[in-house]
Design a protein around this nucleic acid. Structure first.
Lengths: 235, 235
DNA sequence: ACCTGAACACCGTTCAAGT
DNA sequence: ACCTGAACACCGTTCAAGT
């Protein structure tokens, strides 16, 4: 698919842009992440990215076929950040918990990019490493292959979908996020018991509950369920 | 906030547009949903919506402050579709399973709209009804209020986040979706055992597993965990 | 070989002018 | 009172022209 685009490690000589930048796929991805982080998802436009790099916007099309291909590279880079400084402990449950929370944290550190990428399959090197390692943790723990694969699916989709949900909230413009907060703080804490008895009875509890992520609770529950599928060790 | 915009049921007389349409918030929301459904999320632009309604794009700003406010109305409408034809059975577990699957189905029926709205708190009438009903099912089953509220949170966030994840995949342009399918069908089924032993061993299992949603599995597991928190009935 | 710049076909939103 | 139309400040992408 990408065969006429320069390979990642290509040592081809590149002419600097007018402003002196020597472009590369890696530099473009880094700059894209920084742009999103500093100015929000709406800042990721080819035109602004070109300006931030000191190059004409159209020069980027020599490195990525279109914005979707650039986005997949950003996605793989985000997946890569999950693994920085991680090492397996040998305890599958601790390892999965740690990886789940790291995945969530890495995506929430770049909420705007996470929203755009959490649901993508990149096929890239970091994604490949992630699958290999997680399946390895499960097989190493003694899960039979079909169970390992089913648990892998649930684990990754739970983590990614929750990361995307929480990231989407963080990525809202301040005004919209504040408006949603007010709904939980005010609207749903003052429903008349006549028409909405259950909301009236639990509004305050809801206000506290909905202010945090459901992920830690759901992850723990998932790990409990996975543990049940682990065969007892022989001998 | 929306105090200078016409109320939903306002009987104010409205002049038809040049092309004869009498605008209303409801008609605009319906048309927006249809537009997204027929031509994808990128079709939801003020300009195209205006054209579809037979009105000047700028006329819409008399009904919605901006596109975000329109989106929240679309979100509440989607939530409303979950409840069409639903009635409580009295069995909390069957009711939650049914509602979870309906939520997922309603959002997947409008994948492009779901991606844009699944993470929003609308504060609208359908959302209010949803919270009241779900909390009611849990309290009616005998869950103490703190448990009911925690379970509500996990249930709704699991359903919405999984709906958003699956919808985001369905909402991809055909070309991108096909490319991702190929990654699971080809790339990850042919990894060399030398560098990626675990992927090499489970590639075929993964190919089958990743083609379907993790949600039914996760929902069942969640309901199991919830059941454990239900106090035994006295007497 | 690679970057540039103009061009094309779009956006959301505002506001004075029309009816 | 409500809709219109022009205007403003943007988009992604292509492609012939420059170096």
């Amino acid at each position: 698919m990408a065969d006429r685009l320069p390979a990642e490690g290509s040592h081809r000589r590149r002419r600097p842009t007018k402003q002196g930048t020597v472009l590369s796929a890696g530099l473009i991805v880094e700059t894209a992440l920084r742009l999103i982080r500093e100015h929000g998802a709406s800042a990721l436009t080819v035109r602004r990215l070109g300006a931030a790099l000191g190059a004409d916007p159209s020069a980027l099309y020599r490195y990525f076929r279109n914005t979707d291909e650039l986005l997949l590279a950003v996605a793989d880079e985000l997946i890569g950040q999950v693994w920085v400084g991680w090492a397996a402990s040998g305890d599958w449950r601790a390892d999965l918990r740690d990886l789940g929370l790291r995945m969530h944290a890495a995506f929430l550190a770049h909420p705007q990019a996470a929203v755009l990428t959490a649901h993508r399959t990149t096929g890239g090197p970091h994604e490949t490493h992630a699958i290999e390692t997680i399946i390895g943790v499960l097989r190493g723990a003694g899960f039979p292959d079909p169970a390992a694969v089913a648990i892998y699916h649930g684990f990754v989709d739970l983590g990614l979908s929750q990361a995307a949900l929480d990231a989407a909230h963080l990525a809202l413009p301040a005004e919209a996020r504040e408006a949603e907060r007010r709904v939980w703080q005010r609207t749903y804490t003052s429903m008349p018991a006549g028409t909405h008895p259950h909301l009236a009875a639990t509004g305050t509890l809801l206000r506290n509950e909905m202010g945090r992520s459901a992920y830690p609770q759901l992850l723990e529950l998932f790990l409990d369920a996975a543990a049940i599928r682990l065969p007892r060790k022989a001998g």
